[in-house]
Amino acid sequence: MRSEVVQFAVNGTLMRGLELNGNLLAVGAIFTRETTTEPTYRLWSIQNRHPAMLRVSRGGAAIAVEIWAVPMAGLGQILLQEPPGLCIGKIRLSDGEMVLGVLGEPVLCQNQLEITHWGGWRNYIAQGSAVQASV
């Protein structure tokens, strides 16, 4: 019997080569592509350890994401290993496709540094702005 898979958008430490990418690989996820969200999201750095992305009604931007094909049975395991305050929700991509992905709870972003203008977590950490954990 073939396992069902879902297209899953990640925007932070689950991305290739970053700290929690092994959590995707451990459930048999396969990298599909890089893309961006539609321009209705904002991004925050949570204590310079990981990002949190929220959909907003105004002032949003396109955020860089990776799309992974994830076995449905592995989604719960991935979520349980995410930092507190992150959740799985629906994300609209720049091409209009709707996929599941990692979002932040609004309360998590309160009093945190907004990094939307960087366009994504990789751009933010590439500038030495965040603590990048070893792979």
Rank of each mutant, 00 (worst) to 15 (best):
A9P: 03
V10M: 00
V10Q: 01
N11V: 10
N11G: 14
G12F: 04
G12R: 09
G12V: 06
G12P: 06
T13E: 02
T13R: 00
T13M: 04
L14A: 07
L14K: 08
L14E: 05
L14Q: 12
M15W: 00
M15I: 03
R16P: 03
G17W: 07
L18C: 02
L18S: 04
L18Y: 14
E19P: 01
L20T: 06
L20C: 07
N21S: 09
G22R: 13
N23R: 15
L25F: 06
L25Y: 06
L25V: 15
G28F: 10
A29E: 11
A29Q: 10
A29W: 08
I30Q: 14
I30A: 13
I30N: 10
F31C: 05
F31P: 05
T32E: 14
T32M: 15
R33A: 13
R33K: 15
E34W: 15
E34I: 03
T35N: 01
T35Q: 03
T35I: 00
T36L: 13
T37N: 05
E38R: 15
E38M: 14
P39D: 04
P39G: 09
P39M: 01
T40A: 15
Y41L: 05
Y41A: 04
Y41V: 08
Y41H: 12
R42Y: 01
W44L: 07
W44C: 07
W44H: 12
W44F: 14
W44P: 12
W44N: 09
S45F: 10
S45Q: 10
I46T: 05
Q47F: 11
Q47L: 10
Q47S: 13
N48R: 11
N48F: 12
N48C: 09
R49H: 09
R49W: 02
H50F: 15
H50C: 06
P51Y: 03
P51H: 03
P51G: 02
A52R: 04
A52S: 14
L54W: 01
R55N: 13
R55K: 14
R55W: 05
R55F: 07
V56I: 08
R58W: 13
R58G: 09
G60P: 03
A61K: 14
A61W: 10
A61Y: 12
A61D: 11
A62N: 12
A62H: 10
A62T: 12
I63H: 02
I63G: 03
I63N: 00
I63Y: 02
E66G: 01
I67S: 12
I67P: 15
I67M: 13
I67E: 11
I67L: 15
W68V: 03
A69P: 02
A69N: 12
V70E: 03
V70R: 00
P71I: 04
P71N: 07
M72Y: 08
G74W: 12
G74T: 09
G74D: 14
L75S: 03
G76Y: 00
Q77T: 15
L79R: 05
L79K: 06
L80Q: 13
L80G: 13
Q81T: 14
Q81F: 08
Q81C: 15
Q81I: 03
E82I: 00
E82T: 11
P83N: 07
P83Q: 05
P84M: 12
G85E: 12
L86Q: 08
C87T: 14
C87Q: 08
I88S: 00
I88P: 00
G89T: 00
G89A: 11
G89I: 01
G89H: 01
K90R: 14
K90V: 07
K90N: 10
K90H: 06
K90W: 07
